[in-house]
Amino acid sequence: MFRFGNPEYLWFFIVIPVLLVLYIYLNIRKRKDVQKLGTLSTLKKMMPELSLKRSYLKFWLIFAAICVGIIMLARPQFGTKVETVEKEGIELVIAIDVSNSMLAEDVSPNRLERAKQILSRLIDVRGNDKVGLIVFAGEAFIQMPLTSDTQSAKIFLNTIDPSLVPVQGTAIGEAIRLGMGSFSSDQEASKAMVIITDGEDHEGNAAGIAADAAKAGVQINIIGIGSPDGSPLPSNEYGSNFMTDSEGNVVVSRLNEQMSMEIAQSGKGLYVRADNSNRAIQALTAQLDELETTTSSSLVYSEYDEKFTVFAWILLVILFIEILIYDKKNPIFRNVRIFE
């Protein structure tokens, strides 16, 4: 099992393309400045000590050092000890709406990011449950099968964005069907689904499917996210401008609370609206705590070995080599001919 202890430092890789573009730009500018003095071949004869290849090599060594340094800061770790752990909990499948309407900003920072924060907190609170993840919009897909590894569930959760489901819509009924097929065959285990959605562009008979799920012993809970008053829908994930309809009017996305309540009621579960507090988590936790728990055994990685020291040594070697390389030909080894 591999993971990063501080994955947030991996965001520094964003600056890598900027460094490459800047380096290329400065080299082009330098070449133009040199050409003002004469042709490059003539200037090379005038400066025999100059070595462009060494300059390029030094840059790529520094570039490699930066990449290795970022990985080192993120603290790569490998799981080394596997233990069988018994947990007493329920089977919980979480379905998250990733349609474009979830980018509306009537909750901070937007519906989708707030939904991920809520679900991450829920996974922490329900640490003894087996958890599965489903993403849906116009279609539904299993993002992670049912597992006791809640840390992996949080990692998968952080990767969720609207691009995972290209077909737009809100196919809650399909998500419920897929969730029902994700549970184990253990008849004694209590089963529940938590669906977080704004209910926009609702498709299908989700309430009827939720009723069928309740009859099969699966409790359907809905977290509504957004505002009934609605919010302009950004045309991109950065919210720089808003979507408009064919007549040029700004598209406003609204939380469909009535539909969400009907689905939760049919599924013998709870409906709660999410906001910028922890009220939704508290209400949902209380609801799930009423379900009967069962004991299950699972293999988990209980210890992780830090591997950042390996990358630290690689970084030191790269920097040491870079220091030994001159921008111009080394006068000590100028006359050495290894292959002659």
Rank of each mutant, 00 (worst) to 15 (best):
W11L: 01
I14W: 13
I16E: 10
I16F: 10
Y25E: 04
L26Y: 12
R29D: 07
K32R: 15
Q35S: 12
T39R: 14
M46F: 07
M47Q: 15
L50T: 13
L52K: 14
L52G: 14
R54N: 11
L57M: 15
K58L: 14
A65S: 10
V68S: 11
M72V: 02
R75C: 02
K87P: 07
I96Y: 01
S99G: 03
N100W: 11
S101A: 07
M102S: 09
V107M: 00
P109C: 03
N110F: 10
L112W: 09
Q117D: 15
L119Q: 01
S120P: 00
V125I: 11
R126C: 02
K130H: 02
A137E: 03
T147E: 06
T150S: 14
S152Q: 14
S163Q: 13
A175Q: 14
I176R: 14
D186N: 13
D186W: 04
Q187V: 12
E188Q: 12
E188V: 08
K191H: 06
V194P: 01
T197E: 10
T197K: 08
I220V: 15
I222C: 04
L233I: 03
G239K: 06
S240N: 07
S240W: 09
S246D: 15
S246F: 06
Q258H: 02
Q258W: 01
S260C: 12
M261V: 09
S266Y: 08
Y271K: 02
R273G: 00
D289M: 02
T294L: 06
S296Y: 12
S297G: 08
S298H: 11
S298F: 03
Y301R: 11
E303M: 05
E303F: 11
L315I: 00
I323D: 15
R337M: 10
